[in-house]
Design a protein around this nucleic acid. Structure first.
Lengths: 145, 145
DNA sequence: GTCATAACCTGATGTCATTCGGTAGAAATT
DNA sequence: AATTTCTACCGAATGACATCAGGTTATGAC
């Protein structure tokens, strides 16, 4: 993982549709060499997947919120329970007052309420605190440096 | 944006490297028809970009945290100030006690402390509360339904 | 200095993206 | 109802590109 690999990752984050020849141009290598480097980055898991970035609004998911989940039990093995809720985009175990932090996308705040109800149904959950996003400044890829 | 478009988006989220012929197989259309549909999804902005999903650990960014920023002024036009901090991956204006919520990735907790220091330097910021993630259950694409 | 390994380049091959002409169905107009 | 218009689709053709292989240079170990 040298400076060229980082440059390649940065380029691919910006636009993963560009050709290996174009990538080679921007880092000063041949298409073949770039192909081999990217293949290894995928193999090692540094590049997990090639995906598309979708506009949530286009899917009718206009409401973004973060939910702090309080619990009265060990939450270390409840990943599947949260994953079963399709509105939950991220789930993290956190240090501090609450024990789990969720990123939730719903069409409306009414549907958020319904998600909160389903969260309460999960074993060990004792309470929730929802933080509704009013405006997203930005969501961007990880900075590669 | 019909059911076929949603299926295409779901497929592309899973793997954007597959051929249009393969995509056509999974939705029952020809490669040409799929090509045209995807082109329009990009044009409309439903598909914002094609990118790679990078493992933060591979870039040495092992610490994920969320930072609640308290303020004593209107924070509606401070997007650029937060965007200037490369460790900040997301920034949202939120309803509730704090006024901005940040998603921050750093190599270490010491570097998180340094980011907090730089956040304090932003005009209008009166305080911060950092929530450190102990374990990420999952981070996944938006559910297309 | 020599050997071994890894990274690279160039060129060849097959696959695929992209485009085009034509067709069928749906919707709007007369 | 007939006609027109528009949209989505298919199948084929073309050119670009991913992918692979053979040979070469650079890198590092002994």
């Amino acid at each position: 993982m040298d400076q060229i690999d980082r440059a390649l990752i940065a380029q691919l984050q910006r636009d993963a549709t560009q050709s290996y020849a174009a990538l080679g141009q921007s880092v000063g290598l041949s298409a073949g060499a770039v192909h081999e480097r990217v293949r290894k980055l995928r193999e090692r898991g540094a590049i997990r997947a090639t995906t598309v970035d979708v506009d949530p609004k286009a899917l009718g998911l206009g409401v973004l919120s973060y939910v702090m989940v309080d619990s009265n039990a060990w939450m270390g093995d409840t990943a599947a329970a949260f994953a079963a809720l399709p509105e939950v985009q991220e789930a993290h175990v956190i240090a501090g007052a609450a024990s789990v932090l969720l990123k939730v996308r719903t069409p409306t705040t009414e549907q958020l309420q319904d998600v909160l109800r389903r969260i309460y149904d999960i074993s060990g959950v004792s309470g929730t605190q929802a933080i509704v996003v009013l405006e997203t400044f930005f969501e961007r890829p990880i900075a590669v440096g």
